[in-house]
Amino acid sequence: MRVLFLLIVAANIWAYALGQGWIGARPDDAGRDRSRFAQELNVERIRVGP
């Protein structure tokens, strides 16, 4: 029972670290190109409508 508890705690710590990006790239960031945000053209022309 103690071993099962420790395995569950270790799995939770691993899942938290993966979600925070401590192990590598966050799963939410997969496929995103962050360099494109710096290349926005004509930012002043963007208007938010109702």
Rank of each mutant, 00 (worst) to 15 (best):
L7A: 02
L7M: 07
L7Q: 02
V9T: 02
V9Y: 03
V9L: 10
V9C: 01
A10G: 04
A10M: 10
A10F: 14
N12C: 15
N12T: 09
N12Q: 07
I13R: 00
I13A: 10
W14L: 13
A15K: 11
A15S: 10
A15L: 15
A15G: 12
Y16V: 15
Y16E: 02
Y16A: 14
Y16I: 15
A17N: 04
A17F: 10
A17Y: 05
A17H: 06
A17W: 08
L18N: 01
L18S: 03
L18A: 07
L18M: 10
G19P: 00
G19F: 06
G19A: 13
Q20E: 08
Q20G: 11
Q20S: 11
Q20C: 03
Q20D: 04
Q20R: 08
G21A: 14
G21W: 06
G21Q: 10
G21D: 12
G21F: 07
G21R: 10
W22I: 11
W22V: 07
I23G: 03
G24D: 07
G24P: 00
R26V: 09
P27V: 07
D28H: 01
D28K: 06
D29C: 07
D29F: 13
G31I: 07
G31C: 06
G31K: 08
R32G: 05
D33Y: 09
R34F: 15
R34Q: 03
R34T: 11
R34V: 12
S35V: 12
R36E: 06
R36C: 04
R36L: 14
R36W: 05
F37I: 07
F37M: 14
A38E: 10
A38G: 09
Q39D: 02
E40V: 15
E40I: 15
E40L: 15
L41N: 05
L41G: 03
V43C: 04
V43R: 12
E44H: 05
R45H: 03
I46T: 04
I46Q: 01
R47D: 02
